[in-house]
């Protein structure tokens, strides 16, 4: 069996399990929707102000929703021993774990992209900016999943790692937040967004390439 088939098997298994536990993937999305709803309630539904802050709100809510969904990334596998079996595969751990990160992205990142028009609608984002929002999420969320996996792997041994994961990860999310919101803002004003999207893509590529090394090191460390 070659490595690519194995990679797909790991991915397919995770997706099958997720299909049996749909609420795990849905809850962070509902959370995101609710957080976004809270802002018009908190600051008033004036379309001008909503339009101004919409990119920031959506992206901050997306970061928080990502944090919320990280727990299921490795924890179940760690507790039931599946993760140590992955460590014992002939293929490098950094490689096989990317399949799990990809599964996580399909279940948490991609739905964010699909949900983005609804969020844009709720926050009165100009139609011109919708595609920029979707594109910024599409390019940024792979990095979120990869960085998130580092945090999740580092705190596997801890019973209550949740708040610590946020503490570790939020500073690392900042560049994504900056460039993504800037892209959406620019699109809303009819300005060029190529630079921001290109940087987002670059950060994602860099993160997705390098993060697996850190994830694998953290998982091995957790095997103690």
């Amino acid at each position: 069996m070659n490595s690519w088939q194995l990679w797909r098997s790991v991915l397919a298994k995770d997706l099958r399990i997720a299909a049996r536990r749909r609420s795990d993937a849905l809850n962070p999305l509902m959370f995101l929707l609710m957080v976004v709803t809270l802002f018009p309630l908190g600051i008033g539904p004036g379309p001008d102000i909503l339009e101004r802050i919409a990119p920031g709100i959506i992206w901050v809510a997306a970061l928080l929703a990502t944090l919320l969904g990280l727990d299921r990334l490795f924890k179940d596998d760690y507790n039931d021993g599946s993760l140590e079996q992955l460590c014992l595969l002939p293929e490098p751990l950094a490689y096989t774990l990317t399949a799990k990160v990809a599964a996580h992205w399909l279940l948490s990142g991609l739905p964010l992209v699909l949900l983005s028009p609804l969020l844009a609608l709720l926050l009165n984002l100009p139609v011109d900016a919708w595609w920029a929002l979707a594109l910024s999420l599409l390019l940024g969320t792979p990095a979120l999943s990869a960085l998130g996996a580092i945090g999740a792997a580092l705190t596997l041994q801890l019973q209550r790692g949740g708040s610590l994961v946020s503490l570790i990860l939020l500073p690392l999310f900042i560049p994504l937040l900056i460039f993504a919101t800037s892209a959406v803002e620019n699109a809303g004003m009819g300005l060029d967004v190529h630079a921001q999207l290109a940087i987002l893509a670059a950060i994602s590529v860099l993160t997705v390439t390098l993060a697996p090394l850190a994830i694998a090191a953290a998982v091995r460390m957790s095997m103690n």
Binding site: L147, I150, L154, I168, L172, A214, A217, M221, N224
Partner: peptide
């Protein structure tokens, strides 16, 4: 373990 975790995070 704590030291290893902190090392990984510091490098990241």
């Amino acid at each position: 373990t704590g030291a290893k975790a902190a090392s990984i995070l510091a490098i990241v």
